[in-house]
Computed example of a mutant assay.
Amino acid sequence: MSGLALHSLFDILAWLAAGLAAYWVAQRTPVVRPLPQANRLPYLAALVCGAAFGAYGLGSLNLYLSGAPAIARSIEGGLFGGIVFVEIYKRAAGLEERTGARYALPLAVGVAVGRIGCFLAGLDDFTHGVPTDLAIGYDFGDGVKRHAVQLYESAAMALFALFYILALAAKNAYVARNGFYLAVLYYGAQRFLWEFLKPYGRILGPFTLFQLLSMILILYAAAMLATAKEPQHERPLRA
């Protein structure tokens, strides 16, 4: 099976894993509440449209800025676009309740699985790292050892998934309520670091497009965590 075919397979596995993670979370925490019926379809439309626009728009823009213009998808771009479109919709619809709790574990699991596909796609995927002389360097087939940043990110997000699962198992209500913002904060921070090991174009000093997006995601998550309110009446988490 070719690298790109393996990438597609792991994309499917990532979506399946994320769906199972969402179901697992919904069964164990009352924090995950359904939206009002009238808001569900437009909310989903905003999420899907925003994720698609961000994934393809920002992914392709990054390749253009890196001197390799082509149509591309970006996990971070999809996350950024989905957040922006959903927050705009919620403001327009007058929805004040936070709706991200159900997406914390799916985000972490989806990225952890999906990045393995990026790694298996090799050089064609253009998600590899810069050359390195370190022993951890990986030869993607052209005789040059590079940082396998895809696996670095996969491992980092798997660690967050483990942290989140253990927190829910310990009935940590704070993590259950604010897990999505913790996940976004963590994702943005680790992605910011790995970008220094990627061959992408620098657009502001030493920073890539995705590092700028990472900064915005970190600030967004930090602001949401700082303004989180403690509920007066909250049902206990299920084991």
Rank of each mutant, 00 (worst) to 15 (best):
S2K: 08
G3T: 13
A5D: 13
S8I: 02
F10W: 08
L13N: 03
W15H: 03
A17H: 11
A18W: 11
A22N: 09
A22W: 11
P30Y: 11
V32Q: 03
R33K: 15
P34D: 05
P34S: 06
L35G: 03
L35H: 09
A38I: 14
N39K: 07
P42D: 08
P42N: 12
A45I: 11
A46L: 13
A46H: 14
L47F: 15
G50C: 08
A51T: 11
F53S: 15
G54Y: 14
A55T: 06
G57V: 13
G59I: 03
L63D: 12
Y64E: 13
A68P: 09
E76L: 11
F80C: 05
G81L: 12
E87M: 14
I88V: 15
I88C: 06
K90C: 10
A92E: 03
A92K: 13
L95E: 04
G100W: 04
G100A: 04
A101Q: 08
R102W: 03
R102C: 07
L105F: 04
P106L: 05
P106K: 02
P106N: 01
G110P: 09
G110Y: 07
V111G: 00
A112V: 00
A112G: 12
V113Q: 07
V113D: 03
I116F: 09
G117W: 07
L120P: 01
G122M: 08
D125Q: 05
G129E: 05
T132Y: 07
D133T: 04
D133P: 03
A135S: 01
A135H: 04
A135K: 05
I136T: 02
G137W: 02
G137R: 02
D139Q: 01
G141K: 01
K145H: 01
K145S: 10
R146K: 12
Q150R: 05
Q150N: 14
L151S: 10
E153K: 09
A158L: 07
L159G: 06
A161D: 00
F163A: 00
F163R: 00
L166A: 03
L166D: 05
L168R: 01
A170P: 01
K171M: 03
N172W: 05
N172M: 08
A176S: 15
R177D: 10
N178G: 14
F180T: 00
L182Q: 06
A183P: 00
V184F: 09
A189F: 02
R191I: 05
W194E: 08
F196M: 10
G201T: 07
G201W: 12
R202M: 07
I203E: 13
I203R: 12
G205C: 06
P206F: 15
T208P: 00
Q211C: 06
L217H: 02
L217I: 07
L219N: 14
A222M: 10
A223C: 13
A223M: 10
M224R: 13
M224S: 14
M224Q: 14
P231K: 12
P231D: 08
Q232R: 10
H233I: 12
P236S: 12
R238P: 08
A239D: 12
